[in-house]
Amino acid sequence: MRTFANLDEVKAAKGEQLGVTEWHLVTQEQVNLFADATEDHQWIHVDLDRAAKGPFGGPVAHGYLTLSMLAKFSGQLWKVGGLSMAVNYGLNKVRFPQPVRVGKRIRAHGQLADIAENKMGLQVTVLITVEIEGEAKPGCVAESLALLVPAG
């Protein structure tokens, strides 16, 4: 995890790598819970028998489930001191180059891609790549935006 004492240190690190998170195992239980929460029960995610005969050879995580893991991964990649709050400001580009098969482990790599002044503080763009263990292509590549508001 990359730790910054304040916003000045964040500004100075533009373009730098933030590091790599811990591995996370994607389970069928997690996929099923996500399907229930989003009401997306497409067979490639939840029908084990049909998915085994499908194009991926088994069930795969929803792309949006993989994307939602950025919340967990961001907390493992970096933190900034001296803030009153840090909020998710949105996303720019998001791609899912390869499906994440159930039973695979994923982790994220982060880069502090861009920084812009905002009337409340800094708007930071972090390029996050979700690696799938043993696969050549990532499961997700996204530009995640955060708004960092200084204390006081």
Results as ranks from 00 to 15, higher is better:
M1D: 06
M1V: 14
T3C: 10
A5S: 14
N6V: 05
D8I: 12
E9Q: 10
V10Y: 00
V10T: 08
K11S: 08
K11P: 01
A13C: 12
A13K: 05
K14Y: 11
K14T: 10
K14E: 15
E16A: 13
Q17M: 15
L18P: 03
L18V: 12
G19T: 12
V20C: 13
T21Q: 10
T21W: 08
E22M: 08
W23Y: 13
W23A: 09
L25T: 15
L25N: 12
V26A: 09
V26H: 09
T27C: 11
Q28N: 15
E29A: 14
Q30M: 12
Q30L: 08
Q30C: 06
N32H: 07
N32D: 15
L33R: 15
F34I: 07
F34Q: 06
A35Y: 07
A35N: 07
D36T: 07
D36Y: 08
D36P: 02
T38L: 11
H41S: 05
W43G: 09
I44R: 08
H45V: 10
V46R: 05
D47G: 08
A51E: 05
A51C: 12
A52S: 14
F56A: 01
F56N: 04
G58R: 00
G58N: 04
G58D: 04
P59K: 01
P59Y: 00
A61V: 04
A61E: 03
A61R: 00
H62I: 01
H62V: 02
G63R: 00
G63M: 02
Y64D: 01
T66G: 04
T66P: 03
L67G: 05
L67W: 03
L70E: 01
A71F: 09
A71D: 07
K72C: 05
F73Y: 01
S74Q: 06
S74W: 01
L77P: 02
W78Q: 02
K79I: 04
K79N: 15
G82L: 02
G82E: 04
S84T: 12
S84I: 04
V87D: 09
V87T: 05
V87Y: 08
N88W: 00
N88G: 09
Y89H: 09
G90T: 10
G90D: 07
L91G: 02
L91V: 10
N92H: 13
K93E: 13
R95V: 04
F96G: 02
F96R: 01
Q98M: 13
P99V: 06
P99S: 08
V100C: 03
R101F: 09
G103H: 06
K104M: 08
A108L: 04
A108V: 05
A108R: 03
A108K: 02
Q111T: 13
Q111N: 11
L112D: 01
A113R: 09
I115S: 15
A116G: 10
E117T: 10
E117F: 10
N118S: 12
K119I: 11
M120T: 14
L122Q: 07
L122P: 06
Q123P: 05
Q123A: 12
T125V: 15
T125E: 14
I128C: 08
E131I: 06
E131G: 08
E133R: 13
G134R: 13
A136E: 15
K137S: 14
G139A: 13
C140S: 07
V141W: 03
A142Y: 02
A142I: 00
A142Q: 00
L145I: 15
L148S: 06
L148E: 09
L148I: 10
V149H: 07
G152V: 08
G152F: 02
